[in-house]
Design a protein around this nucleic acid. Sequence first.
DNA 1: CTGTTAGCGCATTCAC
DNA 2: GTGAATGCGCTAACAG
Lengths: 341, 341
Amino acid sequence: MPRKRNAHRSPDMPTLADVARLAGVSEITASRVVRAQGPIADSTRARVLTAIAELGYIPNRAAGTLASAGSTLMSVLLPSLSNIVFPDVLRGIHTALTETAFQPVIGVTDYDPLIEERILVSFLAWQPAAVIVAGLHHTPTARRHLEHGRFRVAELMDIDGEPVDIAVGMSHRQAGYETGKHLVQRGYRRFGYARHNVTTDDRASARYEGLCSALQEAGLSLVAEHCYPDASSTKAGRDALAILLAAHPDLDVVVFPNDDMAMGGIFHCMYAGIAVKEKLGIFGFNGLDIGQAMPMPLSTILSKRFLIGKTAAEKLLESRERPAEKTIINTGFDIIEGATA
Amino acid sequence: MPRKRNAHRSPDMPTLADVARLAGVSEITASRVVRAQGPIADSTRARVLTAIAELGYIPNRAAGTLASAGSTLMSVLLPSLSNIVFPDVLRGIHTALTETAFQPVIGVTDYDPLIEERILVSFLAWQPAAVIVAGLHHTPTARRHLEHGRFRVAELMDIDGEPVDIAVGMSHRQAGYETGKHLVQRGYRRFGYARHNVTTDDRASARYEGLCSALQEAGLSLVAEHCYPDASSTKAGRDALAILLAAHPDLDVVVFPNDDMAMGGIFHCMYAGIAVKEKLGIFGFNGLDIGQAMPMPLSTILSKRFLIGKTAAEKLLESRERPAEKTIINTGFDIIEGATA
DNA sequence: CTGTTAGCGCATTCAC
DNA sequence: GTGAATGCGCTAACAG
């Protein structure tokens, strides 16, 4: 005696077969209606749609994926969510995916390539249509998977390197360089730099290098730097600036790896009665709203996070097949003059 | 002649069958090794593991889900990612899920119950093991799905209501109430309130009501309120306060629906030369780091976003079956005295 | 501890 | 425009 169908699952989840039976058509016809694919007579479509509504049918994507060897998932691997930059990128991705059948699946790597690799593999188990990762630097294994998979790949934020498929972002090296040039031009000479401890944030490192090379071209170099022994935060910036100034009271400008820390720097100046800009220039990176809402808007660089996410997702949707040649999209950046440097 | 296996897919993706063949065992044995389930001889396990490594085998979760009627996905539906609150919740969820087989799938509802319903349905198509949503208020359809599905459900942030399965959060009504009591006790009498335009942010509304009822108990009421016609932001807070004060220069305290806007209020005071606290109290909500890093730390309420996310995910993992009785977990909140009220 | 059998729910292929 | 047959890759249920 054959075991009962659906023996080990809930009996009340209607399947395509139920829909087909109720509508008096074959499964494949019902399937075509669900997917809005292939020629269907209007009357047939109507009957199937009615049956779907009546049963409250929800298609089983696992079955669909298995049968068609391709899912509607887009894997998104981001270094962090605490840093508002990445939620912004995500919003961009979401915006591009609204009204499409695709759904993002998010993973957080904590800036650790090994974690990235681990999450990537677990995501690939879902046969994603596309994978979005941050940066161009991955473990060899991860890179191999990205190169050989049957899915599109977008590498975000950074364009200083060779992408697997598509890269969307800006040159962080250039941003650092332009920061240096801009500040030198404004008369600053004694530079300080306050970093934080995320050693694998390649973008911050690239900006740092760009800054140094701009200084070098001007016959200058960093007078002092301090590495805050913890993750980036406003408090980190505040404390780091206090320490920097204690050792080097003669600095005339301090560059921060991001706006959060730069805000902390400004808070220290407020606290210590230091005239920002006249006595000490403060420069950030990202162009967050909060910095621009201050009485003296933060001098910084506007990175286009939302645009990066949106552009990447849109590009990925253009074709399921990986094109022969790689694409690099430079979303650029803007210097925000502000009032703090 | 039978069609070639894998006719319509890439030929080079190894399957369990390949692993089993290479290891000289049956598919089910290989499957047991992959899932670390059931008794397996060490030597067998080793052979299978070797085969897996050699082939670079990645299990197909779509097939696994289909065969076992249950996925390892956890659907997470959040109102927004711009509001740092929700990334914090997500981090908590991620933390609880690390080292488990579960993966979060994120959707963003924009505070719109209809969008929530739409995304929920599309997520249910993946047979998630659990669903996390924000708040206790959903469309009737969404609520029906949540109630009748074969998955666990956690409703986050808010506990003022009847959950489907688990609720984790705090009473926002009470938070508003305590805010009012606290400020009255500190001598404030002429209250202003600066809201923003997200009408469906039930939590903010609940806090507003709690505040009003505390004032009423003290024989007071809001002197003025202003609704900023745009989404919440620091700039919104700054502008809203300017408008409020222009019409009501005699306010002695202004409550904001969140810290971002409260920071804007402080920036307006700095700009306009208003002595914060002595001349005008400023009170926020959330307890963001940046507010506490200011020279005068923001007076606010600490909501425990990370804890909410972490607790919810942990609870959901405790059992796959929905228990008979509903659970409500109150993570509470702390009043941060700060220096701005 | 290991294997055999029988599907999970859907989409592809080809025929009509 | 519609349908029948077939199998995607994996796992539940039992038997040994």
